[in-house]
């Protein structure tokens, strides 16, 4: 069962997990260049998966009042307002000369449309569980609650999860989380995340978020085909002058062996709250065990020495 690339490197995750003849790996290609920030994905996901609300708090982060992917938000639309960098730093910090309330004279340091305002951008991106080829959450799960499906996706079995919480710090993207509230909700204390609508996939349906997305920003399909589509899209955008366009998570040789849910971004990943170069922690696990064995040996040896010295 353990192959050369079972912990790191390109692999068919379903086959590696022991499925003899799995169906094509399924995933998402989220093209943020046509995301309109409508959040239909967030709502459709919650409706289908009976995910509870996450509280009614205004965050003041542009139009994002969800904040992050978490136990109660399996899709999260990020809103990034990128203010224009002023061409000259503001120098006059004194009170502007107001000749008339609300109407300043021409000398005021107020940015006005058409002046000093290069390319303000409002980026929107719908984030989701990456369904990594090498999923740390799944690797570290001690109960087998997290498992690899025949579609190559990673799913929590609510009735097996014991709420140990180990998957939470293991995820390099900060996706999975233990549900803490609301108290009356189901699965409180249980790790929760996107299932890529496992129940819908089984019935030959499209995941709820992709179904609800009005602009095809969220595309669902076979990962191989989506990767090809993504490659063409990014090439087309770059040819059209959108030089910021890049793919994120589409490379099977990257730190997680390629994500099942990958993205076309218009800026660096960290701008959207994504890690720029994530690595599955279990890549280093053999080395960790090795060090631990040596340390354990040292303890044993040390104990022996503690007694030997006396006798000698």
């Amino acid at each position: 069962m353990i192959g050369k690339t079972s912990l790191f490197g390109p692999v068919n995750p379903a086959r590696d997990a022991g499925y003899d003849d799995p169906p094509a790996r399924k995933g998402f290609f989220t093209d943020t260049s046509i995301c309109i920030g409508c959040k239909a994905c967030e709502v459709a996901c919650k409706e289908w998966n009976e995910v509870p609300d996450n509280g009614f708090d205004m965050l003041g982060m542009s139009y994002d009042n969800t904040g992050s992917l978490n136990a109660n938000s399996w899709r999260h639309v990020a809103f990034v307002e990128q203010p224009a960098r002023p061409t000259a730093p503001p120098v006059d910090l004194g009170m502007p000369t107001l000749l008339h309330d609300g109407v300043a004279d021409d000398g005021q340091q107020t940015t006005v449309a058409g002046e000093d305002r290069p390319d303000f951008r409002w980026l929107m991106s719908s984030d989701v569980c990456k369904h990594c080829t090498h999923a740390a959450c799944l690797d570290v799960c001690p109960t087998g609650s997290l498992f690899r499906t025949e579609f190559g996706t990673v799913v929590v079995q609510d009735d097996i999860c014991n709420g140990c919480g180990y998957c939470v710090p293991a995820c390099p993207y900060g996706v999975i989380e233990r549900r803490e509230r609301p108290e009356a909700a189901k699965n409180v204390g249980i790790a929760q995340k996107c299932t890529l609508c496992y129940d819908r996939l089984g019935a030959g349906m499209t995941p709820a978020c992709a179904q609800a997305c009005p602009t095809q920003s969220i595309q669902f399909g076979d990962v191989d085909e989506l990767r090809e589509r993504a490659k063409q899209r990014v090439e087309a955008l770059q040819a059209g002058g959108v030089t910021d366009a890049r793919l994120y998570g589409a490379d099977p040789e990257d730190g997680v062996g390629g994500a099942g849910a990958f993205f076309l971004l218009l800026d660096e990943p960290e701008v959207y709250g994504l890690p720029p170069d994530p690595v599955v922690t279990t890549r280093d696990l053999p080395h960790m065990y090795q060090r631990a064995v040596v340390a354990a040996g040292a303890l044993l040896l040390g104990a022996v020495l503690s007694f030997l010295e006396r006798r000698s």
Binding site: E81, H100, G102, V103, A104, T110, V112, G114, W122
Partner: peptide, 17 residues
Amino acid sequence: LVTERLIPLRVEGRVVH
């Protein structure tokens, strides 16, 4: 919500918010 999505305009020689 302070945002640069709202831009003061210069109208009839004055800035209008």
